[in-house]
């Protein structure tokens, strides 16, 4: 188990390095830098001025060196102005002299940079937005997981029965309805004049301060529906497989009631596979979160990502990407470890 964990973490570390580098490369392409320069300086800068500005601010160093600086494993650049003798550098902020400034300042040291759009330090923005999205995710999980497991278990209990067919078709229907479709349909039915019901609000802007049933129901349901079908189908497959096992037959033959067999013997083994699926569903939800937060105007992490990309806010984009990538990798790790931990039949040497 120890060496498995070590190896798994090593692979994860390598993956994280590669992915953050790709993100760094894609966000620091020339056209993006040029746009950044013009928004920092002014829109009518000539190409020579842009080039000068980029030179001056350390954007024209080797890509790997810059990646190292951004990560915080390479010392930040410093530059002495030939005319005035003033020293500028990556780690030299206003109010800090060149001597006092730290040598390294990157992600690892907690220097996440400054957002152009929000005019705030990025670390704070990310934490705040993650908190908002965390609430959304929490409620989605609360709504999605029990429903999905219930549907899956009931459908898989008697494979091929009418209940199974109905529930399976329902799960296929939900997996075929992406968030932007279900969101639109739900808003039309429950929050517009045409549907006439107007039970809920079509926007969740107010949920950022105060979550209520009225303003949070629709986004949660839209997100939960799309993810639910997949988990339900996996649970069903797993349950159906378990129900054909010898020990289930033995338990039935020794006189246990059907419900007793399901609850006592089948459920525990049938729920191992869905656990992995649920964990892996979290990164999947990320796309949904971006869509739903845009659709319902809920300014969480997904909305921030869209805003950062739309405004070419390079540092915010990179920070958000790092967080997204880390969420994916950590959930994958947990799902792997959990699977091994839960399933005694898997022996890792």
């Amino acid at each position: 188990m120890g060496s498995f964990l070590l190896k798994r973490c090593g692979v994860m570390f390598l993956t994280a390095l590669c992915l953050t580098f790709i993100v760094f490369f894609l966000t620091n392409l020339d056209p993006n830098l040029e746009k950044l320069t013009k928004s920092e300086g002014n829109q009518r800068m000539t190409d020579v001025q842009v080039e000068n500005w980029l030179q001056k601010n350390g954007y024209r160093q080797n890509l790997f060196k810059r990646y190292g600086e951004w990560l915080g494993v390479a010392p930040g650049w410093t530059r002495e102005d030939p005319d005035s003798g003033a020293v500028t550098g990556r780690c030299i902020r206003s109010g800090v002299t060149a001597e006092e400034a730290p040598q390294f300042c990157g992600l690892l040291q907690g220097h996440w940079g400054h957002s152009l759009v929000f005019k705030e330090p990025i670390g704070g923005i990310i934490i705040k937005k993650l908190g908002l999205t965390g609430w959304l995710m929490l409620w989605v999980m609360i709504a999605m997981v029990p429903m999905a497991l219930l549907i899956g278990v009931i459908a898989g209990m008697r494979e091929g029965s009418k209940t199974d067919r109905t529930l399976s078709t329902f799960s296929i229907l939900t997996t075929s309805t992406p968030e932007y479709v279900s969101g639109v349909i739900l808003i039309v039915i429950f929050a517009s004049r045409l549907g006439g019901l107007r039970w809920f609000k079509g926007t969740s802007q107010s949920a950022m301060d105060n979550i209520t049933f009225e303003n949070f129901f629709l986004p949660v349901v839209a997100l939960a529906l799309y993810g639910m079908g997949y988990i339900a189908r996996m649970t069903r497959a797993s349950m159906a497989e378990v129900m054909t096992e010898q020990y289930i037959r033995t338990a039935r033959l020794k006189g246990l009631s059907f419900s007793g067999v399901v609850v006592k013997h089948a459920l525990r083994n049938a729920l191992i596979a869905p656990f992995t699926v649920i964990m892996l569903q979290i990164p999947w939800l990320l796309t949904g979160v971006v869509i739903i937060e845009t659709l319902f105007n809920y300014k969480g992490f997904g909305w921030t990502l869209v805003a950062a990309v739309g405004n070419n806010d390079i540092e915010l984009m990179m920070a958000a990407s790092v967080v997204a990538v880390m969420v994916v990798l950590i959930t994958q790790l947990i799902s792997d470890i959990g699977y091994v931990f839960l399933n005694p039949r898997i022996r890792v040497s």
Partner: peptide, 14 residues
Amino acid sequence: NLVLAFPVILLFFL
């Protein structure tokens, strides 16, 4: 696995 670990939506944005 590297590509699969990359959030799809992010990849598209970039």
